[in-house]
Design a protein around this nucleic acid. Structure first.
Lengths: 283, 283
DNA sequence: CTAATAGATGAGTAAAAATCATCTATAGAG
DNA sequence: CTCTATAGATGATTTTTACTCATCTATTAG
């Protein structure tokens, strides 16, 4: 079919607006351009698409048929373009409340300084999961997740509220906050391995549990006690001297942050974000 | 959206064919042009649409979304274009078997000589009625039909087989074929009015009836007798000396040929055909 | 009767799309 | 393991298309 798509676009607008002038405005063209386009179209198709009345145009039957199809067709294409364009422009990410509040949201201003033109939307909670183009950063079992999907493997260690004196692991009873996931398929934090690696006994440790690391950390800070949690979450609090580390050995875990079907996120801004995020989690 | 429709067309073809080369062939372009288009598109949308592997391209997730929408959208538009284009190129007409066989089909070669590039399809019978873009030439009541839809008002008269001697209306019994429509809403041929206008008496006329004028004419010719029918149908037979006229006065009827919603047929070839047809019926 | 408006038309210009020549990477043939 | 053929990428150039400007027409509103 040797008809120009631009001409069809002009026709579609003119049909919809009922005026070459308005169509021209909509398309940022002169009415002359629209007039030419529609004349070409009519000559190519050998059919009149509009009845020309003075200062107004009225679709012919045939014009109406074509207008319906072009309107529907272009709308379909434009909706997809809008979707893809939004996906290409914005980065939308959802993750656990712990990662979001302890690391991602606080670090976002650094990302925005590097890429001021990439809008990022961070959400937590289940509601947004599986919406298209939203990047889910999940916390999971690295032995189960596809290697390409993994952002970082997590280490665990013990941290204490700032100002508390180093714990005497053997002499007095110690309170330690640890996490017990609601989701039982998730590997447990490597507490036993960490104790063994640091030559410690669980005998005089009082364990207190929450189902989110975030709460453990917050509680330890407010009760001036200790927390066993993944090292990445404490990074900023350590830097800010709101938490301290007592020289214990960190323990590698089976837990990791990952993005399901990570290679399927194709937007360039998403790539930039994920590169930055990987550095953030690993570095 | 500042993306070129041509680029989308190229993308659509490339996505569908899975190759820039094949897309280029399909669009009568060079692969270079397709490559440029898709690069532009990807840059504008800020998203990769294809994974480039050696000598082959694979749609990304996002590419797949866009490919679906563009394919559907362009297909919709192209189907309508094809329909409109066919309607603009061909003239398709359906009418009564009498008009078709006695006048329209025999006259078609004259039309085709004048307009050798306009293909015309003439059909009769109910099957094709109301298909889109088929022009129905109907025979109906001129007092009911919209004036703009009327092609010609019909006169009726008596004609005889060639070679028969002029009838002696009063002395001997005469056989006259007349039409009695199956469709009772149609005005009857103005037989009584014609008899009155010609000062004749129906007493010694033997009326034989068919439901189509075509059969009346054929029967009169084969039985060497008379037929009372619309004048337009006999025009060609008179010219060919296969029928003769005995100087009787024609009688105007309420019957007319018309096209329902005639102004809605907008194709230029249809206009040419209808102008010609109107001359044919009236002249 | 005049001014203003929507559109039509033809000529000239600007912008886009297409090509050409040249490269790259690699799969398959020998 | 080289050599050739192939799909695509890239940059410069040309061709084609789309757009605008100036001018015109036919009406309608004032």
């Amino acid at each position: 079919m040797q008809v120009s798509l631009q001409a069809l676009k002009a026709f579609e607008a003119a049909a919809r607006r009922g005026s070459f002038k308005l169509a021209a405005e909509e398309l940022s063209l002169t009415p002359t351009a629209v007039s030419h386009h529609i004349k070409n179209l009519e000559n190519r198709l050998n059919v009149n698409l509009f009845h020309r009345q003075t200062r107004q145009i009225v679709l012919t039957e045939t014009g109406r048929v074509l207008a319906k199809a072009t309107s529907d067709g272009f709308r379909k294409i434009e909706n997809a373009l809008l979707e893809v364009e939004t996906a290409g422009r914005m980065v939308r990410v959802t993750t656990t409340s712990s990662l979001a509040s302890m690391l991602l949201i606080p670090a976002m201003q650094e990302f925005s300084q590097t890429y001021p033109n990439i809008p990022v939307e961070v959400t937590t909670g289940e509601a947004v999961v599986n919406q298209p183009y939203i990047i889910p950063i999940r916390y999971g079992d690295s032995t189960v997740v596809a290697p390409n999907d993994i952002l970082s493997h997590e280490q665990f260690d013990v941290f204490g509220a700032s100002g508390m004196k180093p714990p005497s692991w053997s002499t007095e009873p110690i309170v330690l906050f640890t996490t017990e996931w609601k989701n039982s398929t998730l590997p447990a934090p490597p507490l036993a391995a960490w104790l063994a690696a640091n030559g410690l006994d669980r005998a005089n440790i009082l364990f207190k549990k929450f189902d989110q690391e975030l709460f453990c950390i917050q509680q330890a800070m407010s009760e001036n006690s200790l927390v066993f949690c993944s090292t990445i979450l404490t990074k900023r609090l350590l830097n800010a001297n709101l938490l301290q580390h007592f020289g214990t050995l960190p323990m590698q875990s089976d837990l990791c942050y990952y993005i399901p079907d990570k290679p399927s996120f194709e937007s360039r801004n998403t790539h930039r974000f994920l590169n930055w995020l990987t550095m953030l989690l690993r570095g």
